[in-house]
Amino acid sequence: MDMARYESCYRHWIAGQEAGLAELEAASANAAAGRATDAELRTVVERCMLGYQDYATRRRALSREDGVAFFAPPWCTAFENSVLWLGGCRPSLTVRLLYNLSGEGLEAQVEELLGGLSNGVIPTGALGITSAQLVLINDLHSRTVHQENALSDRLATLQEDIADRPLLPIVRQRELAAAARLGAAAAASGSCDGAARRRLRAARLGAADAEVDAALDSYKAALSRLLVEADELRMATARALATEILTPRQAVEMLAAGKHLHLSVRDWSRRREAAAGAQQQLGGQSAGTDNTVRPST
């Protein structure tokens, strides 16, 4: 496994997010000033979609090597990992984001409407989501949640399978064989328990072999397939919103807000964990660090 390549892929993605945000914000400013045509905004949106697609494509290739890495990436903070769903952003979060964006400015517009100051314009919030668009968004939301639940169920089944064949029979079999060997060794060495226990631990540590590797590889492959399908759902939901339901201007606003949210949460959580790490280091030095190294398989 080459973790550096995975992290490089992620850094490339973050750089793309930052550049994309700058481009979207410039496009948004131009649109507000009336200097951007729909065609130009659509081009910006499409570039953003291609960025997402490129990232998904890279991950697909890397996940075939080790899909597990993407489910709890060591290159992300614990906070970032806590909000991951199957290795990425939960697709229905995009709809929630859009609902909240579409609500901005609505109360003020309703006040104007009720005060007779609206000149006959029906409030649609700052983003201008129409009735017809709202119906389509709700429909997409239902489909997305349904597909999310299906993928979540598959992950649950996969995780529960850890307590089933093929892994559990191997564990039980090895345990029984080790116990038998322990008994034999004890008899041969005249009840030297300490030595027998040390040999048992050594046997366990050396237990990795083809059968176990096959079982673990099977699990990883299944996770990899889930990651690919989850990325497809993320792409499909974002693309449906950005290119089928929303206008180019609305799509620019939504995509910019999404990137801004992602990068802000990432920066904040990194800052907090860096501070926590420094604190831990100080505490560790003064208390005298435990130097025991845990053996790893």
Binding site: L113, S118, G120, V121, I122, T130, A132, T247
Partner: peptide, 18 residues
């Protein structure tokens, strides 16, 4: 809100889906 919506017959300006 409903009264105002029903009374104001003008569709939103530049309604992209209309």
């Amino acid at each position: 809100v409903a009264r105002q919506c029903l009374e104001d017959g003008n569709p939103p300006p530049a309604d992209p889906t209309a």
